[in-house]
């Protein structure tokens, strides 16, 4: 790790000022990606601005049909939240299966989606549930947030404050885990909502995305068998030593069918 200046602001406004004034600043939420990267000397920020002391960024609030999760809320808190378990059990289950207990007690929703690892779990939920990402500047629709591998719609120095998740009629996330890292080789999140079926896929391609073709196939018949003829495009799939493109494409279908079945 290289030397850096450490800051721990108490408010979003203060954090925004610090990041704006830093030469090459980095916001750190749970640090589950940034800190290992810095330890491996692959990142050398001049300033690290720790968001852990900002009370307004943390916590879970249910207001009618909207579940608001603060950006600094840990995976463990989401997994254990009785409100979320009641309103969107699939979201609590997703959070409860990220990484290991150490990761879940440090890692945060905001950190996960800001990093946008192509194999992360949360992006699939944010997209499929039609969530809204609230920042210190604006609101961004979940499906517009994830733009490319490790890239998001966030502008320079923009800070995620919370995510609003509308409560679906039913939802489920199915993840096929990398045997080594247990990240998603393929993760499919499906939701049955008043406005119709919604689906998102993570792990399979360069960036989590809304799965329009899955949604179309489920439009008339929200059932696993409705996907019997579904084929994910092989040429869009990631390929590595753990899973080739053809296998990933196949898994998209299998995970989608299982997720739909679990919504029943």
């Amino acid at each position: 790790m290289y030397e850096f200046s450490y800051h721990r602001p108490a408010s979003v406004a203060e954090a925004a000022e610090l990041i704006a004034n830093a030469a090459d600043g980095k916001l750190v939420a749970g640090g589950q990606t940034l800190l290992p990267t810095m330890k491996h000397r692959l990142a050398s920020p001049s300033d690290v601005i720790d968001l852990g002391g900002i009370a307004e960024m943390s916590g879970i609030v249910v207001n009618g049909n909207i579940v608001t999760v603060g950006a600094m809320t840990t995976h463990a808190e989401v997994a254990a939240s009785s409100e979320i378990r009641e309103a969107i059990p699939a979201l609590a289950a997703l959070a409860g299966n990220i990484g290991d207990p150490a990761v879940r007690n440090r890692g945060t929703l905001g950190g996960s989606i800001a990093n946008n690892d192509p194999a992360a779990d949360y992006p699939a939920a944010v997209i499929a549930l039609g969530a809204t990402v609230r920042t210190n500047r604006r609101e961004i629709a979940g499906e517009d947030f994830f733009t490319a591998m490790f890239e998001t719609a966030l502008e320079e120095d923009e800070i995620i404050v919370a995510v609003d998740f509308p409560r679906p009629d039913a939802a489920s996330y199915m993840k096929f885990e990398n045997p080594a890292s247990r990240y998603a080789i393929v993760g499919v999140f499906v939701a049955r909502t008043a406005a119709g079926p919604r689906a998102a896929v993570t792990g399979a391609t360069a960036c989590a995305h809304r799965a329009w073709r899955l949604e179309e196939a489920l439009q008339a018949d929200f059932s696993a068998s409705a996907l019997d003829d579904f084929e994910a495009p092989v040429d869009k799939m990631n390929a590595d030593i753990h899973a080739g493109a053809e296998y990933r494409a196949h898994l998209v279908k299998v995970m989608a069918q299982r997720a739909v079945a679990a919504c029943a």
Partner: peptide, 24 residues
Amino acid sequence: ALLEGCHYDENGQLVTASYMDYAM
């Protein structure tokens, strides 16, 4: 039998150099 495989690519780069890729 199920998990562990140390993998070098054709250029001799060690692909499985951490527990993220080497499955214990």
